[in-house]
Amino acid sequence: MTELLQYVITGVTVGSIYGLIALGFVLVYNSSHVINFAQGDLQMVGGMIAVAVLTAGLPLPVAVVVGTLGGAVAGFLLYKAAIEPAGDAGPLPLVVITLGAALVLRGVVELIWGRGYYSLPAFSGDEAIQFLGVTIVPQSLWVLGLTAAVVVVLTYFFNSTKTGKAILATSIDPDAATLMGINTRRMKLLCFGLGGFLGAVAGVAIAPIAFTYSMVGLMLGLKGFVAAVLGGLGNFKGAVIGGLILGVTETMMSGYGASDYKDAIAFLLILVILIFMPRGLLGASGVERV
């Protein structure tokens, strides 16, 4: 029983990180129907900037804030420098552009900081908390808390603010949105920036647990994409739920002795879910968007 609980806690932590990255995917997808393959690397950029700021002698909270803002700036730059100039190139060319952007981000980071591993201190110490025989690292709580906060804020943002609604309108029908006086370009820019910000939040939150290095975005980005699709692309709650399902499944597999095939089983699960629910768990049904 303790074991099961431990697996759930570990899985939820890992899953929250996947969920945070998945949220970044969803934001960008909602605004431009593009899968941003640089999402994982935006996460990496956030972690690396935070480490650099800390190494420069500034306190940890400052490093965390600067790191997350750095991710947002990288997201803005990605849109301004590569997505906007491409205009209405269509989704696949835009996906290739994000793939190129991922390589550029990785290349720049390697030129500045090399390919080594870097760590960030845990936000509130390393002393593990024992609870009902279950071990929880304080940083896990930070990860969970940040994910929850992000979901709450995003939900509020999209349901109750004008800008949030404008973004939703842009995603549903860009032409109509433009007619309504919404600056759709600005909305897309905002989403790329927000996506970068969310990625960076994940990046700084996980750096104390799993470290950061130039290639860290590759695997985490892939897992985030899986989580986003699993939840139903375009759905925020779905992204987080997708991430949690993925994280808990993986951990359970490892815990009950099938770590060799844990990723394979996760992918199999996704195949089965997609076959029975072709639009993911919480994907919008009905009219197909062409």
Partner: peptide, 21 residues
């Protein structure tokens, strides 16, 4: 050498920006 990934990425972006088809 160390500029490889950077240049590769820039090429991908440029081709797609100027020749999206």
């Amino acid at each position: 050498e160390h500029y490889e990934s950077l240049v590769y990425g820039v090429i991908l972006i440029l081709v797609m920006v100027f020749m999206p088809k």
